[in-house]
Structure formats: C-alpha cells, structure tokens
C-alpha cells in the first residue's frame, strides 16, 4: 500500500475499540478505555501532557459523551449515526482546544477537511465495531 499521509492529522481509526465498548458496555466503560488508551499511548510516544495529548483526550471525552447521549435515544440512530456524531464532536473540540494553545481561531481553517475525513473514519469505525460485535457474539446493549 502507498502511504497516504493526511494534511490535517491522522485517521483516528484507533477510536473503534472505544465505540465497540460504548455499544457493548456503556459510557463508563468507554470512558475507561479512552482514558487508558490516551495515557498509555501518549507515554509510549512521549507526548504525555503535550498539546497533542490534551487535544486527543478532550476531543475523545466529548466524543464518548456525545455518542453515549445519541446511544440513549437508540431506535432512532444507527451505529453509523452514533459514530459520525462522535467524530464530529471530536473534531470540533480538538479545533477549539488547538485554538486555546495558539491563542487564535486560525485552527478553524482545518475544520472542513477534518469533518470530511472524520466522516470516512467514523463510517469505517462503525463497520468495524458492528463486525466485531457480530463475530464475538457480543450483545449490543
């Protein structure tokens, strides 16, 4: 495969376990997975407490809370809908956090591309979560 670096960040496919746990184990378990993923990941890459870490964690927390809220009104939203809502919340919060770091609203210029890429990732994550839960026979609670 040809590497395909994004001009605005990374794909965010590692959020799929968080979505899977959210669907299967609820908000509190998803928050645990997200936090552990964030801390361990940043300590391994040496980015602990860096802007990258703060943006990732704040965006992730808002994504989980958003997805959890959409999950609560299930019957209306499908997994793709929940995942897209989470990705959108994540991108908006990351841009706002970045704005606080650089003391300018300039990061908003990245938002259109982030939203488009976020949708692609969100659909992929939704499929992976759905497939995982089907294969392991996990109940979507």
């Amino acid at each position: 495969m040809v590497p395909f670096p994004l001009p605005v960040g990374r794909w965010g496919l590692s959020n799929y376990p968080v979505l899977t746990v959210l669907l299967n184990g609820g908000i509190s378990n998803a928050l645990i997975v997200l936090t552990v993923k964030s801390f361990i990941g940043s300590m391994i890459t040496g980015s602990f407490l860096s802007p990258q870490f703060v943006m990732g964690l704040s965006g992730g927390l808002c994504a989980v809370l958003t997805m959890g809220s959409f999950r609560k009104v299930s019957g209306r939203f499908s997994i793709v809908g929940i995942s897209v809502a989470g990705a959108t919340a994540n991108n908006i919060v990351q841009v706002l956090t970045a704005s606080l770091f650089v003391k300018s609203m300039a990061p908003a210029a990245y938002l259109p591309l982030l939203l488009i890429i976020g949708e692609i990732s969100a659909i992929a994550n939704a499929y992976l979560s759905w497939k995982t839960l089907s294969v392991i026979g996990g109940k979507i609670v």
Partner: peptide, 12 residues
C-alpha cells in the same frame, strides 16, 4: 441497533 438507517443520511 442497526449498522445504518435512513436517519443517518441526514446525519452524515
């Protein structure tokens, strides 16, 4: 939950 439904089209 289903993987995808009609409301998603609006949502996406």
């Amino acid at each position: 939950l289903t993987l995808f439904n009609r409301l998603d089209v609006l949502f996406l």
